[in-house]
Design a protein around this nucleic acid. Structure first.
Lengths: 154, 154
DNA sequence: CTCCGTGCAAAAGGTTTGCACTGGT
DNA sequence: ACCAGTGCAAACCTTTTGCACGGAG
């Protein structure tokens, strides 16, 4: 968290209550919350925060490098603070994305740059498949939207 | 394309002009168009098609397995018809996602299922980094909503 | 003939922006 | 004190839905 303060200073952006709160709310979670999820989870700690601020703060966090957008098939943008190399399980039925630790896949060597003019930085493997819930459900609960998923909230 | 017709029959869904057109428009492209991009690109060939239909058709195509949603950090859903194993370059500056062929990474063995109850099916590697355009631009042309990108716009 | 898909229009959801004020440095 | 960040409200973009009609099987 102190690292965060230093990053803010380094980037010349003020360290506000809201930024602190959003970062904490985000780093506590290991799912991949949407901006709105974060907004909701902050209602108790910081009720006066506004939704646009959450969006703005999340973008700041991504910009200074303490958070990241997760590649996600769903409609809403999702974020994470886990920056160490890790992989993802993507359910093709419900579009859920879960973290997946698998050290065996952590040591691939990055391709030589140049070819496409692309500067490689890191990678993560997306495994497509069917999650336990959907496999259990058998049928195809194709729903993707928030409406159909109950928000377990942790 | 005939394979597509058979898939439609197999899934018991009618083979309509719109479905044919959307699939063709999608498979012609190697970027990862949004539903709206497809809608736009169809204006010349099939001007009477409606936007909701494009969304519905794309979902059908995904359901019967001839197309796929691409995991993408951006806001709008993106699709592809390239179902063979391949990887992606994700630009952390502009959120662009490009296909990336690299046979050396095509032969990873899928993890044993079970562990998480996840049924593995396939995978693709997402390489994070900076694309040639953004590297060239030097600065940070971060978020670029459609507004800022040139559109054919009719 | 029956049923599903389509087109239209409107609603629902998600994200960004303009402006005046407050708070961080 | 200065400037950036915030809150509010409204705009904007994306995706879904209800309904009546028309075409595919």
């Amino acid at each position: 968290m102190t690292a965060f303060e230093q990053l803010c200073r380094a980037h010349g952006i003020p360290l506000t209550v809201q930024r602190r709160a959003v970062l904490e709310a985000l780093s506590v979670r290991d799912d991949h919350p949407t901006a709105d999820d974060i907004f909701a989870s902050l209602q108790s700690r910081l009720p006066e925060i506004s939704r646009p601020t959450v969006y703005r703060v999340l973008n700041s966090l991504v910009r200074i490098g303490v958070a990241r957008k997760v590649c996600h098939p769903g409609a809403a943008a999702r974020f994470e603070t886990k920056l160490e190399r890790h992989h993802h399980l993507v359910c093709v039925r419900c579009d859920k994305v879960m973290d997946f630790e698998h050290p065996a896949f952590d040591r691939l060597s990055l391709p030589d740059a140049g070819a496409h003019g692309f500067l490689f930085d890191d990678y993560s493997i997306h495994f497509r498949g069917v999650c336990a819930d959907c496999a259990k459900a058998g049928g195809r609960p194709r729903r993707t939207r928030k409406r159909a998923q109950q928000r377990s909230t942790t």
